[in-house]
């Protein structure tokens, strides 16, 4: 934590008063509910017990067992949801990063209209999710959609595909999410590119390095720390993805495009099995924790990664 080093100890009492309101708000909304979440996951909180859920019967890990029992609808869906979100995340994060990096390098060149383009690429990022994904839903419509219009017109398909039902739905959402997500990567990577001292490239050119060598020997190592952080944030965001699935596919996306957030939401608030919903969301959090730990451990050589 770099920055202003701060004043000596005697004035500390006031610092605690200053953070108190923020601490209280976050305790009440984040930390206390989270602890109750562990409690709920161990109790049989459902339609009948929810009125007095604090006194719901204790059932140990039964919710976790039921939640992943592949003989039940929920269990089968939970396993499929974890698989789907992994596929979705891997594709969305890699595509978002590669496109973001390519555009960042492009925007780091000197050309006419560069400032305008830098503003333009922010558009998808700042557009509200509810707007962007509803527009994509419109584009992916089977009979009246823009995509199918060109697919049919250019004879790429004979029958217009139905995008938002069944297995293609996952890809439709992935494409929309990549469109919405890459500008953030581009923004962060462009800022990092601009911090690379130009002397490095000048020296490399004097030594006769090719453009590709300059990219692999200077650009890639210089972007490493930022990339590690960016990809970590992308993993966390994408594994928790909800808005795009809920908006484009509705409350029940179907098993082929089910993801943990939509499954948990339905399990808790439609089927009123709060206990199983809580258990599933705790498993989701633990998976994220493991991924984050492994990821940071694998990259521990990277200076700065531990800082966060």
């Amino acid at each position: 934590m770099k920055g202003v080093s701060g004043w000596s100890r005697q004035r500390h009492a006031i610092a605690y008063w200053m953070i108190l309101p923020a601490v209280a708000a976050m305790l009440l909304v984040h930390y206390i509910p989270m602890l109750w979440g562990f409690y709920i996951s161990m109790h049989d909180v459902n339609l009948f017990t929810m009125v007095d859920w604090i006194n719901a019967p204790f059932i140990g890990f039964q919710n976790f067992i039921d939640g992943f029992n592949s003989a039940t609808t929920t269990g089968a869906r939970a396993l499929k949801a974890l698989w789907n979100i992994t596929v979705y995340s891997v594709v969305a994060i890699s595509a978002g990063y590669v496109i973001g990096l390519a555009v960042a390098i492009l925007l780091n060149q000197d050309f006419w209209g560069r400032t305008l383009m830098r503003g333009l690429i922010l558009l998808p990022y700042i557009t509200p999710d509810c707007v962007a994904f509803n527009v994509w839903k419109f584009i992916f419509q089977s009979r009246i959609g823009l995509l199918n219009r060109y697919l049919v017109q250019w004879n790429l398909v004979s029958e217009p595909p139905i995008w938002l039902i069944g297995p293609p739905a996952l890809w439709a959402v992935t494409i929309a999410s990549i469109w919405k997500g890459w500008p953030f990567a581009a923004l962060i990577l462009l800022a990092a590119l601009q911090k690379i001292p130009p002397e490095l490239y000048e020296a490399a050119r004097v030594d006769g390095a090719t453009a590709w060598q300059q990219f692999t020997m200077i650009t890639v190592p210089q972007l490493r720390i930022v990339s590690v952080m960016l990809i970590l944030m992308s993993i966390l965001w994408n594994f928790n993805a909800f808005n795009q699935f809920f908006i484009m596919l509705g409350r029940d996306p179907g098993i082929a495009a089910e993801v943990p957030s939509t499954l948990i939401l339905r399990e808790a608030f439609t089927n009123l099995k709060y206990g199983i919903g809580s258990a599933l969301s705790i498993v989701l959090m633990l998976i994220l924790l493991v991924i984050t730990t492994v990821y940071l451990y694998a990259l521990r050589g990277t200076a700065g990664a531990e800082e966060v």
Binding site: W36, G37, I40, F242, L265, A268, S281, L288
Partner: peptide, 14 residues
């Protein structure tokens, strides 16, 4: 970093 859905259920019940 926490999934929003993680505290939505207890938050709702509270």
């Amino acid at each position: 970093m926490l999934p929003g859905i993680l505290f939505l259920i207890p938050y709702y019940l509270i």
